Simulated scan of single mutants.
Amino acid sequence: MGSEGGDGDFEAFVAARGPRLLRMAWLLTGDGHLAEDLLQTVLAKVWPKWHRISGDHPEAYIRKALVHTHASWWRRRWRGEVPHGELPDAAASSDAYESVDLEQSLAAAIRALPVRQRAVVVLRYFEDLSVEDTAATLGCAPGTVKSQSAKALRTLRAALPQTVAEGGDRCARP
Rank of each mutant, 00 (worst) to 15 (best):
E11W: 10
E11C: 02
A12P: 01
V14S: 09
A16V: 11
A16C: 07
R17S: 11
R17N: 03
G18T: 04
G18Q: 06
P19N: 10
R20I: 01
R20H: 07
L21F: 04
L21P: 10
M24A: 12
A25H: 06
W26Y: 15
L28C: 04
E36Q: 09
Q40A: 13
Q40L: 15
T41R: 11
T41A: 13
T41K: 00
T41V: 07
W47F: 15
K49A: 06
W50A: 07
H51C: 02
R52T: 13
S54T: 06
G55W: 05
G55D: 11
H57R: 14
P58S: 05
A60G: 06
I62D: 14
R63N: 02
K64D: 14
A65D: 07
V67W: 15
H68E: 13
H68C: 12
T69V: 12
T69P: 01
W74T: 11
R75F: 01
R76K: 03
R77S: 09
R79P: 00
E81K: 08
E81C: 03
V82E: 14
L87G: 12
D89N: 08
A91K: 07
A91V: 04
S93Q: 15
Y97P: 01
V100A: 01
D101N: 10
E103M: 10
E103T: 03
Q104G: 06
S105N: 13
S105T: 14
